[in-house]
């Protein structure tokens, strides 16, 4: 593709952590013994493939309404979001695999990806990038993609991706969570419109 011939490295901001507070949520390894959520919450499901010292993501809720994606105007307003309201998901020393956490329903923005290097804080600012979103539908297991933070890095960059790999992972997830998915069905829930799952299930 056009920008395929650009460097695939993601530029990182190198700066001191200033006034950054985040409440941590805890990811647990996805397993079929997890209790189903009620109607007031949903599971976030993410595949992790992260390296480095203590990777984590910060996120904020954009809307508590039951909506799958926001308007473009919402994106612009993100600049003014108070970082102090953000929460974080810690991924330190988590081996590759599927992870879950119960969350309130709504539309969320991943505001930054943290990849600290010993006592230096590297992060990727994603607050204004629509593709770094996810949505939580209540009573569902919400697949948001595969988060990759490369172990290999340069002085001012690191490769970071949030891959939408629903079709690739679908059968793995169904095999991993056969009983839970009966109670909380699997939903493809990136924070942007993606009709693939409904097209696949059409007529079933």
């Amino acid at each position: 593709m056009k920008e395929g011939f650009k460097s695939l490295c993601v530029s990182f901001i190198f700066a001191l952590l200033l006034c950054h507070e985040a409440v941590a949520d805890e990811l647990v390894s996805a397993n079929d013994s997890l209790p189903p959520t009620g109607s007031g919450a949903g599971y976030l499901l993410v595949k992790l493939n992260v390296g480095g010292e203590a990777p984590s993501i910060d996120y904020v809720m954009l809307s508590s309404e039951h909506m799958r994606f926001a308007s473009k105007e919402k994106v612009i307003n993100l600049h003014f979001l108070n970082q102090r309201k953000s929460k974080s998901l810690e991924m330190k020393q988590l081996p590759p695999g599927y992870y879950m956490v119960e969350m309130d329903p709504g539309l969320y923005q991943i505001t930054r990806v943290n990849a600290p290097y010993y006592d230096l804080s590297f992060w990727l600012d994603t607050a204004n990038i629509e593709s770094w979103r996810f949505a939580i539908t209540p009573g569902a297991v919400n697949y948001i993609g595969e988060l990759v933070i490369d172990k290999e890095r340069g002085k001012n960059y690191i490769k970071t991706d949030l891959y939408n790999r629903f079709a690739m992972h679908k059968s793995e997830i169904e095999a991993l969570l056969p009983n839970l998915l009966k109670q909380n069905p699997l939903m493809l829930n990136p924070g942007y419109r993606d009709d693939f799952q409904s097209a696949l299930m059409q007529g079933e």
């Binding site: 593709m1 056009k2 920008e3 695939l8 993601v10 994606f69 308007s71 473009k72 994603t126 204004n128 990038i129 629509e130 593709s131 770094w132 970071t160 991706d161 949030l162 891959y163 939408n164 990136p190 942007y192 419109r193 993606d194 009709d195």
Partner: peptide, 28 residues
């Protein structure tokens, strides 16, 4: 749609994509 919503797309690319490929919101 997956191309237009790649997580590696920076703001400049998103703008360029909307002009050259289409808007994943309005033209989905």
């Amino acid at each position: 749609n997956l191309i237009l919503n790649r997580s590696t797309n920076r703001i400049k690319t998103v703008t360029w994509n909307r002009e050259h490929h289409g808007d994943p919101f309005d033209e989905y």
